[in-house]
Design a protein around this nucleic acid. Sequence first.
DNA 1: ATGGTCGGCAACCGA
Length: 256
Amino acid sequence: MKVGTFNVNSIRARLKIVLDWMKKESPDVLCLQETKVPDKDFPVKAFEDMNYYSVFRGEKAYNGVAILSKLPMEDVKIGFDEYESEGTRIITASIKKIPVVNTYVPQGFHPLSEEFREKLDWLQRLYCYFAEIFDPKQPLLWVGDFNIAPAPMDVYDPKFLLGQVGYHPDEHANLQRLKDWGFVDVFRLHNHEPEQYTFWDYRERNAVKRRMGWRIDHIWATRPLAEKSIGVWIDIDQRLKEKPSDHTFVIAEFEK
DNA sequence: ATGGTCGGCAACCGA
């Protein structure tokens, strides 16, 4: 089973990139973040034509998450629970009885901002969501744009960036708590090389060329599922060479 | 304390 994730930064602006990549890679599941589209305008038909089911929740201009799957999805959950109205950052669906949680973690703006407190609060609610609903002894996937680089080798300049948004001790504490609950960073299970980035800030001039990257897009799995992982790859799409910006695809392969 | 840029959407917001 192949599972991909991609912060698409508008599914309508990058529909062709996504469809082409799906043709090339043929993932069983693809999780998208920042779809930036209200549900009524989500391109269901385009994915249907490629024999993918889709579940999604979005809004105008901001946020939005979607899961595309070759197989039907069950137990779809929008937001943290059925009473959660602001649900455009997390969506869960089970595929072959394996729950897939797709998140677009709040970016956090700046460590001294209210948005940063909200990011940390959101991560705490996410912890509660996992702890209340799921069991780390069962197969479970958590994928998406976490907006956090976990370790020094996951950012281009750890000394300079320590304490900045995306590489902050308070974020790391929250991430560690989630990891301790029962997640494995499946990418790092298979790859120990530095400079494996999934994101370059397009406000930085020539960020890709200058290797100013971050690994903030992740595929995490509970132990029983991580044990079945074969490999995880970062796919630097061709367009990054032409237009140095944005996120990469990340794809993991599991047995069966 | 976030901007040199994007995307959405129509003046700026969020990343």
